[in-house]
């Protein structure tokens, strides 16, 4: 299961994908890092133990490696890198020794900025995500507004179509994460409904 976090470091926001591999055997000396990741996000975000922590490091690295400044610098989806990181963590190596783990500590510390994504019921609401990569041409809701299921929350221009993005949930708009003109990647959270 992949979770997405929005991490702001030095005023620049990154989207970080974290793949949750479940309860891997804890490696020595890794528990602290795991808690650092899990704690601030309310315990719901990363519950996977050391393997997940190692991946947060890797994911952050992926984000840093990207030069795009906007919120679209989504860390590359985990392919082969994730199992490698997990394996190393499980063997008791420090995350820093993971090939890609150049910034293992910073990512967890930035976790409070994490935004629940992919419609999973985490924290204060459920995110409505972009079904296609494209550009936001209109945001139809503001924080605090009531929406019904099926209401249009934003208009996303993609594939030469002004796609109405509707909320699958009814509730109150808790966060608006994009503004007019923003470029978004597929599955980027646009608004959070609580």
């Amino acid at each position: 299961m992949t979770r997405r976090f929005r991490v702001t470091i030095g005023g620049v926001t990154y989207n970080v994908d974290v793949e949750e591999l479940g309860q891997a055997a804890p490696g020595p000396g890794q528990a602290g890092a795991a808690q650092a990741a899990a704690g601030p996000a309310g315990g719901a975000a990363v519950s996977a133990g050391p393997a997940a922590a190692a991946q947060v490091g890797t994911a952050a690295h992926g984000a840093f490696a990207s030069t795009a400044p906007a919120g679209t610098a989504s860390a590359a989806a985990f392919g082969p890198a994730a199992p490698a990181a997990a394996g190393i963590a499980g063997n008791g190596a420090a995350p820093a020794t993971a090939p890609a783990g150049s910034f293992p500590a910073q990512a967890p510390s930035a976790a409070p900025a994490a935004t629940p994504a992919s419609g999973s019921p985490v924290g204060e609401g459920q995110a409505v995500c972009a079904p296609l990569p494209g550009m936001i041409v209109d945001v139809k809701v503001t924080v605090g507004q009531q929406v019904a299921a099926g209401d249009v929350v934003a208009v996303l221009e993609a594939m030469k179509m002004e796609n109405d993005i509707t909320s699958p949930y009814a509730g109150t708009v808790k966060q608006v994460l994009v503004s007019k003109g923003a470029s978004v990647s597929m599955n980027d959270p646009l608004v959070v409904i609580g």
Binding site: P131, L132, A158, M159, K160, M161, N163, D164
Partner: peptide, 8 residues
Amino acid sequence: QARVLAGC
């Protein structure tokens, strides 16, 4: 369906 994924 043009209104979902632009009908792709």
